[in-house]
Simulated assay, not measured.
Amino acid sequence: MTAFNEVPGKVFRVRELHGHLGLPTDEPSINVTRSRLGRLVRQGFLEQSGRGRYQKRINAL
């Protein structure tokens, strides 16, 4: 959520988010992040604005 708070309104792709956070870009790491982002979408913190594109919900904390 920190990356989304730092750049409000920005739409991130998973690999771009990994680069922004300095995380490894190997496929297992990417899949874990996809899973976590999906959970944040279901909890209402993020919205998925397209396939593989995530952004912070406007009304999220």
Score class of each variant (00 low, 15 high):
Leu61Val: 13
Leu40Val: 00
Gly52Pro: 02
Ala60Arg: 10
Glu27Gly: 02
Thr33Pro: 00
Val32Met: 10
Gly22Asn: 05
Met1Cys: 10
Val14Asn: 03
Leu21Cys: 15
Lys56Pro: 04
Phe12Ser: 06
His20Gln: 14
Arg51Val: 05
Ser49Met: 02
Glu47Met: 11
Gly52Phe: 01
Thr33Trp: 08
Ile58Thr: 15
Asn5Val: 14
Phe12Thr: 07
Gln48Lys: 15
Thr33His: 03
Gly38Ile: 01
Tyr54Met: 06
Leu23Glu: 07
Val41Ala: 06
Gly19Ile: 04
Arg42Ala: 14
Gln55Val: 14
Leu61Asn: 12
Arg51Tyr: 03
Asn31Glu: 15
Asp26Gly: 11
Arg15Asn: 05
Ser35Gln: 03
Ser49Cys: 08
Phe12Gln: 05
Pro28Trp: 06
Val7Asn: 15
Gly19Leu: 13
Arg36Asn: 07
Phe45Asn: 08
Gln55Pro: 04
Leu23Arg: 08
Gly38Ala: 13
Val32Tyr: 09
Asn59His: 14
Leu17Lys: 04
Arg53Ser: 05
Leu61Ile: 12
Gly50Glu: 07
Thr33Ala: 10
Ser29Glu: 12
Val11Trp: 06
Phe12Pro: 04
Arg57Pro: 09
Phe45Glu: 10
Gln43Thr: 09
Gly38Lys: 09
Val14Met: 01
Val41Met: 07
Ser35Asn: 02
Pro24Ile: 00
Gly50Thr: 04
Arg51Gly: 01
Glu16Leu: 06
Arg34Tyr: 08
Arg53Thr: 04
Ala60Met: 11
Gln43Lys: 13
Gly44Asp: 04
Tyr54Asp: 03
Glu6Asn: 15
Arg39Thr: 05
Leu61Met: 09
Gly44Phe: 05
Ser35Gly: 08
Gly19Pro: 00
Arg57Leu: 15
Lys10Phe: 13
Ile58Trp: 14
Ile30Ser: 02
Gln43Trp: 01
Asn5Thr: 13
Asp26Ile: 11
Pro24His: 02
Ile58Met: 14
Phe4Leu: 12
Met1Phe: 08
Arg39Cys: 00
Ile58Cys: 12
Val14Leu: 05
Glu47Val: 13
Thr2Glu: 15
Ser49Asp: 10
Phe45Lys: 10
Arg36Met: 03
Pro24Arg: 06
Gly50Trp: 03
Glu16Tyr: 05
Lys56His: 12
His18Gln: 07
Tyr54Trp: 09
Leu21Trp: 00
Asn5Gly: 08
Gly19Arg: 14
Gly50Phe: 04
Pro8Ile: 13
Leu23Ser: 00
Leu17Asp: 06
Phe45Gln: 09
Val7Asp: 13
Ser29Arg: 14
Gly52Ala: 02
Leu23Ile: 00
Lys56Gln: 15
Pro8Cys: 13
Gly9Ala: 11
Arg51Ser: 01
Asn31Val: 12
Leu46Phe: 07
Leu40Gly: 01
Ile30Lys: 11
Asn59Cys: 10
Pro28Lys: 11
Gly44Met: 05
Leu46Asn: 06
Leu37Arg: 02
Gly50Pro: 01
Gly9Glu: 08
Leu21Ala: 11
Ile30Gly: 02
Leu46Thr: 08
Phe4Glu: 11
Phe4Asn: 10
Phe45Tyr: 10
Val11Asp: 11
Ala60Lys: 09
Arg34Ala: 02
Tyr54Phe: 15
Pro8Met: 10
Leu37Gln: 01
His20Ala: 15
His18Ser: 03
Asn31Thr: 12
Pro28Tyr: 03
Val11Gly: 10
Ala3Cys: 08
Ala3Ile: 09
Gly22Asp: 07
Arg36Ser: 04
Asn59Val: 14
Ile58Gln: 15
